[in-house]
Structures are given as C-alpha cells and as structure tokens.
Design a protein around this nucleic acid. Structure first.
Length: 565
RNA sequence: CAAGGUGUAGCGCAGUUUGGUAGCGCGUUUGGUUCGGGACCAAAAGGUCGGGGGUUCGAAUCCCUUCACCUUGACCA
C-alpha cells in the first residue's frame, strides 16, 4: 500500500470529545472519526485491523465446527413476543414499523432466528450438535452511549448459537467454547480472564464474561488471589453470616428532620455515621412497587434485586409513585409501610440495632428502630466491596476494572421451548432442544488491543493483528537512489507475502517516523543515506532497536522478525 | 431520566464578565530556503460564532427557546 494513496489521517491534536486513552489513540492514528453519540466512521486502518480480528475469530469458530451464515437484521415483533424479549429488551431496542404497521426491531442479538434455523434443519439427534454463527452489526439504543467505541449504539458482534440433545451436552460444548475463547484472546495478544456474570435479558442458567484487563474499563470486577474466583461485581454474593441482635432500646421515636432527604444530610443533622441508617429505596418492578433496604453507606444492587423479584423491568420509583403508596420521597421507611407492599432487606441489616429509618411523613425520621418493628424478606441485596470475603474460600476479595469482550451462555430451553424447536431422540421420541450462545464485541476487541499495546508515542501492535507488518520509509523522495531501493524492497516484501506500507509521501523524515510510531507498525525499513553503501536500517517498534542491514538480506531479516512476532 | 459542562475555520482553542469590523496555534494551498525526528520565511484560501426568536442604532457577547455533544450519577429514598 502506498501511503500517498492511503486514507490514514493521523492527527497531532486529539479530539476533545473522546476521553479514554484507547479512544484518543484510535482517533489520532486515523482509525475512527465520531459521527454522533455512539456512532462512528470506521476508517480503512481500523477496518483492516477489524478484519484481522475477524480472521482469528473465524479460525476459532472453524475449530468449533461452527458454520458461518447471516440472519436478517430486522426481527418481527411477533417473534420477539413469543420469547418474551419484546418487553425484556424494551427500550434498549431500536424498533420500527413497516408500511403495513407491523412492528420490527433492529436486532440487538439473534437467539430467535438462530433457534428458528435450528428448528428448520435439525430433524433428529443425528444432526446434533448443531451450531451456526454470524459476524454482523448489532444495534442497541443504549441509555447512555459512552467511552467511545466501547459502548456504541451500533457495533459488530460475532454471535454463535449451539443446539444440543441434553443439558450436559450443552454444558460440555460451552466448556469447549470457553477454552477456545481463551485460546483466541491469547492469540490476539490480549490479557483476559473469564468471570461469572448475570445473564440479563439473555436468560439462561450459566454464563461467563470474558474481561480484558483495563484500568479505564467500565465494568467493576471482584477477584480472589487465593482461590482464583473472579466475577462481575454485580453478581458477587455477599455471604457473611449475620445474626439478629437483641440490644434494643425499646420503642422507636419520631424525630423531625426538616429538609434532610439524603443520608449525607441526615448524617450532618443527627451527627450519626452512615452505618446507623437504613436506606429505603422504592422500585417499580413491572409497574408494581417494592421497597429495598440496605445500610446507609451501601448501594442497592439492582441486578440482585431483579433476580430476587424475577421481573422484566426494574426502575427506581418516581416521586409520584412514592406518593401513591402513601409515603414521601426522602422519608421512606419500612415501619408503617402499606402492608401490601413487599419489603426486601439486605442480610446485613439483621445485625443492626437502634437504627434510623424514614417515617413515611414529610420531615420525619424514626430513631432507635429495630428489625422487630417491621416485617420483611431477608435477601442478599447489596454490592460486594473490596474487603468483603470470597464466596468460595472466605479470603478477602480484591476489585479491579475490566472491559467486557465476550459473553457466553448456556441457555437451556429458554428459546427452544417458546419457539417449539424439537428433535427426535434415539428412542424415536420428540424432545425439546437445549441451546447455548456465545458473543464477542469486535470493536471492543480492537479497542482493548490498543489499550493493552501502546506507549507514549502511540500504538505497538502485536504482529498477528497488525494490518501492515512493515513500514518502508524513504528519507528523501527526491533522491533517486533512495526511491529506487525503497520501491524495490517494497515490491520484494509484498511478493514475499508480507503486507507493507510504503511511506512515499513528500514529508520530512520526522513526520514519517512519528506516524510510524503512532500507527504502531511492528517493523520499519529506512532507506536513507546508507543506500549508496548498499545498506538500509531495520527498526523494531516494540523495542526501539535499529540495525543496519545489507539490502540483499532485508527480506530474509524481516521474514525472521515477522515469524518471531 | 437527573445534575453539571461545552458548542466560534478541517483539528485544538481564545474572545462572552463590561455589546462596537471574527482572532490564535496546528493543518491546507502557493512561492522560496531547508532536509535523518512533527523545520523556517512570505503570501493566500477557509467562519450560517450549533439552530430559532427577542432586546438594541449595533449581538459570538444580553434575554427567551430549542438542538447536539461531553462528564458524572443512575447512590436519591
């Protein structure tokens, strides 16, 4: 590729509307330009990198005997209603109507179609296991697109679906896929690990996320150095055993707390620590109110609450919702709460005594409240924190941030049942299929590669994914000897099957060196003053080393470097 | 959805407080000097000051309204 003809618009300034390091680097290295919130132009260099990633993904899918195909992007409302996901995905889906008024979603994922394809082609147990995948654009109307390419409204996903005769076979395929994912990410030069996670709108019984280690990641994780346990923070069970306490002071009393809505305001007014308060949060679970209680300094873990309630949509109640149940926003409490409203309390509250709660009246809180003063269901409701104990071995947990690259699920019969996907077993009986699904976000993989492989000068791409292995740099384009040598080497390397960027631009060397470093090509060949002696310089981006090489040996030298990777 | 912030040339920004001819750096074009680490000199092109409305003799600047983008939070109970 001739640089002078190639759209690789590097930038000295970084765009102000991108925040994370990898996003800025992608913009500066001419990979992306932003269109609007969560939408991007993906420029040629990014596209080439994405193609490298896709190639490696396809190799892995081949190894799993998974067949590449393509599903439609539009999915009818009718199908999504059959599996209950028209509501489960809800506002996260872009939806539209055709000219006849029929509803469609722009698919956020494709379990429905995959299951229908399975239903179409699987006749008997002889056809199993059956698995298909696609690499295609997905669309999600995110609450808040952020972190550039990491949480975009349109992105490329590899989504694979497998079908099996039994749950055990589904699990064993899942385990193989997990191993293949590990191989894949290692091959791509990524440090990742699998963590336990919530299955969200996907459903199913067992799932894990593949997280890339990332300081600027958006997903909090917990892990245990002792036993190797690792999980998305939102699913870490808080397993401390609590005992109900008995040191009661007697009956609770009212206290006037004018204009103190928040725990912090209450702390200042009553001169008590946050641990003396119980926060009461009202949620609407599929439009029915519920109350959740956690200690004043804790956070309600909505994923846990949602799983306890088994509801589709869980949202914080509005001020009006709270008035409807006879309470006041800022002063909600479990004591005297309307009896038909379920109260869920975090286990931790069990061991609290003489605490403060809202009085369900404006400007009123209650002091010296104890658990005997109200009835509730005890559940695990709070987020684990650094220092909470590992649910497996009991040692303290650590926390870190990550970027979710992939998510794999054992789905059981969630989709096959509602869409009636069956097969004939070896007894001649009709049985419902078991399924699994396996996703990877391609742009996130690219962003993570950049995040994990850069220095202060720019990208340092691993050879496997680098779109160009070599940058041939002419120091002075007006110098005939230099141009001749460079052109000759460029052609020789290309003929040897090595992708080369030939920097033939009429720029000063400094510019070319800087772009070489910014764009992260693994090797440079500099054709300069030593050409007359039959020598060029070969430099390695990662180590910064440079050596003089006889022009005759350049191709050989580079082949060796590329092989070493 | 809430709170805060930002919209001025392709990119990065100043100018807004106190209304008075639209500015700077990078980039682009042309000419020249340079030429192994983002060079220098000279000239030039490029702007609906996010949109709409208002106040005013006069608005990037003041007022109203709207849109987009960014950040934080979804911690408020």
């Amino acid at each position: 590729m001739l640089y002078s003809k190639f759209l690789l618009p590097t930038m000295k300034n970084e765009p102000s509307d991108m925040d994370s390091t990898s996003q800025k680097l992608m913009a500066r290295s001419g990979m992306i330009r932003k269109v609007s919130s969560g939408l991007f132009y993906y420029l040629p260099y990014f596209n080439m990198l994405l193609r490298k990633v896709s190639y490696e993904i396809r190799r892995s899918m081949d190894a799993m005997h998974c067949n590449e195909m393509k599903f439609p992007i539009l999915v009818s409302q009718e199908i999504l209603e059959k599996t209950g996901r028209w509501t489960a995905f809800g506002k996260e889906m872009f939806s539209l109507k055709d000219r006849n008024g029929n509803g469609y979603a722009i698919s956020p994922t494709n379990e429905e179609y995959a299951t229908l394809v399975a239903k179409m082609f699987i006749k008997s147990y002889n056809d199993l296991p059956f698995s298909v995948y696609q690499i295609q654009q997905k669309h999600r109307d995110e609450i808040r697109p952020r972190n550039g390419v990491i949480r975009a409204r349109e992105f490329t996903m590899k989504d694979a679906y497998s079908f099996h005769a039994t749950e055990d076979e589904a699990i064993s395929y899942y385990q193989k896929m997990k191993q293949e994912y590990t191989n894949l990410f290692t091959r791509l030069g990524l440090k990742t690990f699998a963590v336990k996670a919530d299955s969200g709108a996907m459903g199913g019984n067992l799932c894990e996320e593949f997280m890339a280690v990332a300081d600027e990641g958006e997903t909090p994780l917990a892990f245990c150095d002792n036993c190797g346990y690792a999980a998305n923070l939102e699913v870490v069970p808080v397993t401390n055993t609590y005992v109900e306490q008995n040191g009661f002071k007697g009956r609770y009393k009212k206290v006037i707390t004018e204009r103190a809505h928040t725990v912090k305001e209450l702390m200042d007014m009553l001169q008590m620590p946050a641990t003396s308060f119980v926060k009461s949060m009202v949620y609407m679970a599929d439009d029915k109110p519920v109350v959740a209680l956690v200690r004043g300094d804790r956070q309600v873990n909505e994923v846990k609450l949602k799983n306890v309630l088994k509801c589709n949509v869980l949202e914080l109640a509005t001020v009006k919702d709270i008035e409807k149940i006879g309470s006041v926003c800022g002063f909600v409490g479990p004591v005297g709460m309307r009896e038909d409203i379920p109260i869920f309390a975090d286990y931790e509250i069990m061991q609290m005594q003489n605490f403060v709660v809202g009085g369900n009246e404006k400007d009123i809180h209650l002091l010296d409240v104890n658990v005997k003063d109200f009835s509730c269901k005890w559940v695990d409701l709070r987020f684990a924190e650094q220092g909470d104990v590992c649910p497996i071995c009991g040692k303290p947990l650590k926390t870190a941030m990550g970027t979710e690259l992939g998510h794999i699920f054992v789905l059981g019969q969630k989709y096959t049942k509602s869409l009636d996907a069956t097969f004939i077993d070896n007894q001649g009986k009709t049985q419902t299929l078991y399924g699994g699904c396996y996703g990877i976000g391609l742009e996130r993989v690219v962003a993570s590669i950049i995040d994990q492989h850069h220095d202060e000068k720019g990208l340092v791409l691993p050879t496997v994914v680098a779109p160009f292995k070599v940058d041939v740099i002419v120091v002075d384009t007006k110098n005939e000897a230099q141009m001749e040598t460079a052109t000759m080497l460029y052609e020789k390397l290309e003929n040897a099957g090595i992708p080369v960027l030939f920097d033939d631009r009429k720029e000063r060397v400094g510019v070319k060196f800087n772009d070489f470093e910014l764009v992260g090509i693994p090797i440079k060949v500099v054709c300069g003053r030593d050409v007359t002696q039959g020598m060029v310089e070969v430099g390695v981006r990662e180590t910064g080393t440079v050596e003089k090489v006889d022009i005759q040996h350049v191709v050989h030298t580079i082949q060796n470097l590329v092989k070493k990777g």
